[in-house]
Design a protein around this nucleic acid. Structure first.
Lengths: 141, 141
DNA sequence: AGTGAGATTTGGAATTAATCTAAAGTAGTC
DNA sequence: GACTACTTTAGATTAATTCCAAATCTCACT
């Protein structure tokens, strides 16, 4: 299955088992917490949301689940400068804009041909498996 | 002075004092260590090189100097995923390619018009002060 | 249904990169 | 030559994440 669209919540179990992994309640809760509020939360924020549904879940588990979901391509990691890693269920190729004041992050669609032009800049011998584009700036008042 | 080219080593003192800062031996050593081997070293690596020239320099000072040099636009910070921050004296707008195996990083020139096209993707209301483009992948054998 | 192997979760300790702090050193100015 | 502001320094501290080893769970097989 090639992923071009965001996973519907039901597909998590399937995608996980495709990778030989189990669809545990913790993994589903963590994944749902990304889907329901798509604001690029940090692991701590996911932890807070997950605890609301399952008070016994641990922070280590949240890190484990996020890592697992990244591994089987259900979500993406987003890093910006030294800030904590954020997580994103949008699997379309896209860029991120980060507001310097508030730290909030929004998705920016990038046409496929621009990604192609960027990849074409690489000298022969280098092949990119991913391209990360991050804008930093401010939101007009 | 608008910076479009890498600073010649002599220019550091001037650039620093323009910003009301002093050209200390530590700052010059740290800057030179970036110029002489342009391999995007981490603060720890800069520290090691600086110590060879000035055994009494401290790691905190290296962090301070790097921060100062970034502030007055003599060098750039480069972040990639969770790795330690790296430093780069190349002030041209450019992208970075990072080899997943070795962790080494190389500069990739990006034509100005591509940067413009990227910035044009932002919806009205968002204005970017910088764009970071990072490729991740592998170097062909 | 019971059992064993392997996967998963958990809390706490450990790690890493970076920042903070407060004291000591240095430099330009009056 | 002293005042003041800027710098450096070592060590303590922080923040995010990873590691670890024990407890728990789940599936496959009997």
């Amino acid at each position: 299955m090639i992923v071009t669209e965001n996973m519907p919540p039901e597909a998590v179990a399937q995608k996980l088992s495709e990778s030989g992994l189990r669809a545990t309640p913790q993994r589903e809760i963590v994944y749902r917490s990304l889907l329901t509020k798509r604001d690029h939360p940090t692991a701590e924020e996911v932890f807070a949301r997950a605890k609301a549904e399952m008070p016994t879940i641990s922070l280590a588990t949240v890190y484990n689940c996020l890592e697992t979901l990244v591994q089987c391509n259900l979500i993406r990691q987003v890093n910006h400068e030294r800030g904590p890693t954020r997580y994103c269920p949008n699997l379309h190729p896209h860029a991120h804009f980060r507001d310097e004041q508030t730290g909030t992050m929004v998705d920016i669609d990038v046409p496929a041909d621009l990604f192609e032009r960027l990849k074409a800049l690489l000298p022969t011998g280098l092949s990119a498996s991913s391209v990360e584009i991050t804008f930093r700036g401010k939101t007009q008042p």
